[in-house]
Computed example of a mutant assay.
Amino acid sequence: MFTEVLLAGTVLLGSSVQWLTGMGFALVAVPALVLLLGPVDGVVLANCAAGAISVVGLAGGWRRVRPAAMVPLCVAAACTVPAGAWVTRQLPEPALLLVMGSLVTVAVLLVMRGLKVPALRGTRGAVAAGAVGGFMNSAAGVGGPPVSLYALNAGWTVREFVPNAQFYGVVVNAFSVAVNGVPRLSADQWGAVAGAMLAGALAGRALAARIPEKRARLLVLVLALAGGVTAVTKGLWGL
Score class of each variant (00 low, 15 high):
Arg89Asn: 08
Arg89Met: 06
Arg89Tyr: 02
Leu91Asp: 07
Pro94Phe: 07
Leu96Asp: 06
Leu98Met: 11
Ser102Asp: 03
Val106Tyr: 04
Leu109Glu: 00
Lys116Asp: 07
Val117His: 03
Val127Ala: 12
Ala128Gly: 01
Val132Leu: 14
Val132His: 03
Val132Ser: 08
Gly133Met: 10
Gly134Asn: 09
Gly134Tyr: 10
Phe135Arg: 02
Met136Ser: 14
Asn137Tyr: 02
Ser138Glu: 05
Ala139Pro: 07
Ala139Tyr: 02
Gly141Met: 00
Gly143Gln: 11
Gly144Tyr: 04
Ala151Thr: 01
Ala154Ser: 14
Gly155Leu: 02
Gly155Tyr: 01
Trp156His: 11
Trp156Asn: 09
Arg159Trp: 07
Val162Asn: 02
Asn164Gly: 08
Gln166Asn: 13
Tyr168Arg: 05
Tyr168Gly: 04
Gly169Val: 04
Asn173Leu: 11
Ala174Met: 15
Ala174Cys: 15
Val177Arg: 03
Ala178His: 08
Ala178Arg: 09
Val182Lys: 07
Pro183Ser: 09
Pro183Thr: 06
Ser186Ile: 08
Ser186Cys: 10
Ser186Thr: 15
Ser186Phe: 11
Ala187Cys: 07
Ala187Thr: 14
Asp188Pro: 06
Gln189Phe: 07
Ala192Trp: 04
Val193Gln: 09
Val193Ala: 11
Ala194Asp: 01
Ala196Lys: 05
Gly200Thr: 11
Arg205Ile: 02
Ala209Glu: 15
Arg210Glu: 03
Ile211Asp: 03
Glu213Leu: 12
Arg215Tyr: 10
Leu223Val: 00
Leu225Thr: 03
